[in-house]
Write a protein that binds this DNA or RNA. Structure first.
Lengths: 249, 249
DNA sequence: CTGTGTCGTTATCGATTGATCAATTAAAAA
DNA sequence: TTTTTAATTGATCAATCGATAACGACACAG
């Protein structure tokens, strides 16, 4: 409607440059330095740049932050944003998409069900690759911000995760352990698989979203936690009985 | 300075009424219904009421929400807030305190180190009681909001948690498993204990903070996860070696 | 070099924000 | 009851919000 879908010329797109400067000597409170003029860019290129920088910016300040501060982060002016997005909400939705959908790797599915390799090895490699994508300050914080503000986007991401990852993990470990999945016990085992996910995820929250520094590195945590779950994957579900004292392994 | 610390008369304080109406027929956009007049309250009582209602309100809308909406939630007017708190930030800090410090239960420490009982039983009971406090929509969401906005308060809460809970859990399970804690392996075992915490915590995030509904109940998750960690608590740390395929338990 | 379409900016609007203050009124003290 | 004290409110301010419109300037086709 507003634009004839120029589709530009697939220019040599600058790929992933999360820590670019943007504003150099920006001591001024609101306006960008007069000496630094804004480079003129083709429509699609500018639009993508805005989404990328907006993701960086909203990750730090939350989606309640102002469009003017975002423009400062971009090195441009605030009304420019409204040439590319009708409302602030439209821009936020675009940031959601770029964070939750565009980074999804379809090869994760195949990796998880490749039964020519041991489950534990598959799981360790999957979580190593998965966390390479999500365990950074930007992704982690946007995930948390989105979950608190928009149940919708987080809900559908969690559904996606459960269908394609969590459920698969439960199936693979159960198969490895010789456990038959039934409609009765399925949700229980999925919940156990979720708790494996949660233990790894919360490590990322502490380290990246909150900027605290656990003493050990990501790969150590993944290897040990996966090892624990595969080794002690429950054969029968403890549902109502009181906690029995455990016999030492 | 502003007030002579009246300390009121310890009136029969209304205790914990998280789901009160506040505004009844509030279809009006900004002002409260004229028929419903604000009850006049002693200083400390009103102050505590404001903090409690503010916690409810900020949990839903985030700390960026407006003081006017908060006043609506309270059933009073917006300027009233500034008779009790100098700035909005002061009120927010008070909410932090009421959520993170005032609910801490000192008996948790003793429960965890009571070696007359089996570790697994102690852990299950601790997490049952701990999650009774934190696993509700209000606490969970405020914890997440605070972590994203104020690293300070979350950082100190996590330190408190590590010193008094996580470290103790690591020590107790290691003792039970006959593992000697040294300065070399201590941080590794604390990290494993953190992952136990994380797996239970993330269950709460999904269910309460995001309002999703895991299919199984809290106690089931706690019993099974604690069982897994106690059973498979690693005797030697996997640090650099590639994942070995595991021998079935 | 000159027009022309488009990217970017300046200026500004109405609504809303946190915060202040004098006026009001209900509760406690006399 | 009358007086005193303090809790509550309506009115309002300066700053800031998202969003719009009109103008300016750079690139490119001819």
């Amino acid at each position: 409607m507003r634009r004839t879908l120029k589709e530009s010329k697939k220019a040599p797109e600058r790929r992933r440059n999360p820590l670019s400067g943007g504003k150099s000597s920006g001591a001024k409170p609101s306006a960008r330095s007069a000496s630094q003029k804004t480079k003129r860019l083709p429509f699609e290129q500018r639009r993508k740049l805005i989404v990328r920088k907006a993701a960086e910016f909203f990750a730090e300040s939350g989606f309640a932050a102002t469009t003017r501060e975002l423009a400062d982060h971009l090195g441009t002016t605030q009304p420019l944003l409204y040439k590319y997005f009708k409302t602030k909400k439209d821009l936020v939705d675009e940031v959601y998409k770029s964070v939750f959908l565009d980074v999804w790797d379809d090869s994760w599915d195949d990796l998880l069900i490749d039964r020519s390799r041991p489950v534990e090895e598959r799981l360790v490699e999957f979580y190593a690759r998965y966390t390479d994508v999500i365990m950074n300050r930007g992704w982690m914080r946007i995930y948390l911000f989105a979950g608190l503000r928009d149940v919708g986007i987080t809900s559908s991401y969690i559904r996606l995760l459960e269908e394609r990852i969590i459920r698969r993990i439960a199936v693979e470990i159960c198969t490895f352990c010789g456990i038959e999945l039934t409609t009765d016990n399925e949700s229980h085992y999925i919940e156990i698989a979720w708790s494996l996910q949660g233990s790894i995820f919360y490590y990322g929250v502490r380290k990246y979203a909150y900027g605290l520094s656990p003493r050990t590195d990501k790969d150590f945590v993944i290897r040990n936690i996966v090892g624990i779950y595969v080794k002690a994957w429950p054969h029968e579900m403890v549902v109502t009985s009181p906690p029995r004292s455990v016999q030492l392994l």
